[in-house]
Amino acid sequence: MQVPENSIYGFLGPNGAGKTTTLKLILGLLKKQAGTVTVFGKSFDRDRIAILQQTGSLIESPSLYSQLTALENLKVFQAIYQCPTSYMQEVLNLTGLADTGKKTAGQFSLGMKQRVGIAVALLNQPKLLVLDEPTNGLDPNGIIEIRELLKRINREKGTTILISSHLLPEIEKLATHTGIIHKGELLFQGPLEELLIKRNQSSHILLDTGNMEATRSLLQKYKIPVQEESGKLLIPAQPKECIAGINHRLVSEGISVYAIQPIQNNLETIFMNLINEN
């Protein structure tokens, strides 16, 4: 696994694929059985403290002391990072927690706890940010806010972000690079565009018409492979000009067209394709 500097690396995989385990290995939370971890060009085993000084993390659920307020929680970590105290207010503002006052973390909603977790991860202005499914528990608005925040940090401060998720659409909106893990094996790694091309290559179009047999004959004339699915026809993804041409022919031959629907593959299908490719 290689995370390019200044990138947002989306680490994808279904539940139980090994995403959290990998992130824990990178952060030294689990003992390695084999291999090496190198961060900022330094060996993690040799330069653990120097690397962690420039790394922020949020692994699984947020780590908070329930009897302390958001600010007090940040003070616990600020004492170790020895970063300026002004950073605490800065990250509270960034994560929308500036008004939590004397409310203790135990009284926070899951979304608020997640925000404090992100604030802790950002506290030392890290060069590398490791986030394990950071939008868990956030409402749609919160998800958008955190996504924009991460993009901004990456753009303005050059922070490298390694973020895991099991949701491809979420990563698609954020990442510049992706890695896909399945059953502990890295199946794909590269720029996001490469993954999107792979996805588009294996996408389909669903045709719902008034005369299925006539539609099938027409498509076969174009040498397009056809599959039947729940009374509709499924064909491999085609250039948009070609789809417009098919639609035009169907209509001109008097076949009613109810729907032409692109079916983009979900993560599971991409996994299956990648497994088959491997």
Binding site: L29, L52, S57, E60, S61, S63, S66, F77
Partner: peptide, 16 residues
């Protein structure tokens, strides 16, 4: 405290 608040993972990723 660390087990109760699930904070060992954060403590062990601090530079100490």
């Amino acid at each position: 405290t660390e087990f109760r608040n699930n904070t060992w993972k954060q403590v062990h990723t601090l530079p100490q």
